[in-house]
Amino acid sequence: MKLARVLGTVVSTIKHPAFDHRTLLYCDVLTPAGDPDGQRIIAVDHVQAGVGDTVLILDEGNGARQILGPTAQPVRAVIVGIVDEVELVR
């Protein structure tokens, strides 16, 4: 899974039906230290994350379909957690 910060929301009315009624959040992937690593991901929100939250993103299709069900065929990235704290030991 990837650590990311939610930057904003993606508004889209014309889209594949698998994305209907699902919130799309535009996220900035972070290093464990909390710095952006340059990659941006659009993910389906599953935990009511808000802009500015640090979240956990599952970026793999099979896992996404297990969470969202078989109708979510082309969904790949799902936000599966809101991170409270990251502690690094090195």
Binding site: L7, V10, V11, T13, K15, G61, Q73, P74
Partner: peptide, 23 residues
């Protein structure tokens, strides 16, 4: 999987038109 039939040699698909990006 965004295509029908889904057993096609495709590795990128446009699945939505963005109306707005609220950042």
């Amino acid at each position: 999987l965004a295509c029908d039939p889904s057993f096609v040699p495709v590795d990128a698909a446009v699945v939505g038109i963005v109306d707005a990006l609220d950042v």
